[in-house]
Amino acid sequence: MDIARQEFEEIRSLREKLHRPEIRQSPNAVAELLAEGFVEFGSSGTIYDNREELIALLTEEGTAQTSPLVIAHNCAFRSISPDAVLVTYRTVSTMGETSARRHVLRSSIWQRIDGC
């Protein structure tokens, strides 16, 4: 998929939603963002390959007292097929102003399904 500026912004917005606590606390909102067959390799090395279990884990995470603040930067997009794009980016997360920061290199594949 060729990345026009509007599509770039749309994909970036969707990806950033997955880092927001209010989205992660909503099973319906997360389900709208994750495709069937979703697989994630977590920063801990854990492989999440059950979409429903991951949605439940994210919902439980949201009920914790504090969730880390996650900021994404250095976003790059690369077309890998006519309807899919590879997104690579870095995140910095912190649990508070005085906490150590955690830097993670991440990637995700976004695919247009049924024109959406």
Rank of each mutant, 00 (worst) to 15 (best):
Y48C: 02
F38T: 00
H103K: 11
R78W: 07
C116S: 09
F38C: 00
I71Y: 12
E32L: 12
L69R: 15
V87E: 08
Y48T: 01
R102I: 10
I71T: 15
W110H: 04
V92E: 09
A84R: 08
Q25S: 14
F8W: 14
D49Q: 04
A72M: 13
R5T: 15
R112V: 02
I3N: 06
P27D: 00
F77H: 01
G37I: 01
L34H: 02
L34M: 06
N50P: 09
E7S: 14
V85G: 01
C116M: 06
R102V: 10
N50K: 07
E97S: 14
Q65R: 11
R51T: 06
T88H: 04
A31C: 09
V70H: 09
M95C: 04
T46C: 08
R12P: 07
C75I: 11
E40F: 00
N74W: 08
S93C: 09
E97H: 10
R112C: 12
R101K: 09
L14I: 08
T88I: 11
S81F: 02
V87W: 02
Q111I: 13
Q65L: 12
Q65A: 12
E16P: 06
D114I: 03
T94W: 01
S93N: 13
F77E: 01
E36A: 05
E22L: 02
T98E: 15
S81G: 06
G96D: 09
S93T: 15
S13W: 10
E52V: 03
R24C: 03
A64P: 09
C75M: 10
R5C: 13
R102C: 04
L57H: 06
A35S: 12
G62N: 09
E53T: 05
V85I: 11
L54G: 07
N50E: 09
R90T: 15
F41N: 03
A76S: 15
H103N: 13
S67E: 14
L69F: 11
E60I: 14
L34Q: 02
A4N: 04
R5M: 14
L57A: 10
I80N: 04
E53V: 11
S43I: 05
S108F: 03
N28Q: 15
C116Q: 08
I11Q: 00
V70D: 10
R20L: 11
E16Q: 11
T66C: 15
F77S: 06
G62M: 02
Q25H: 07
I113L: 12
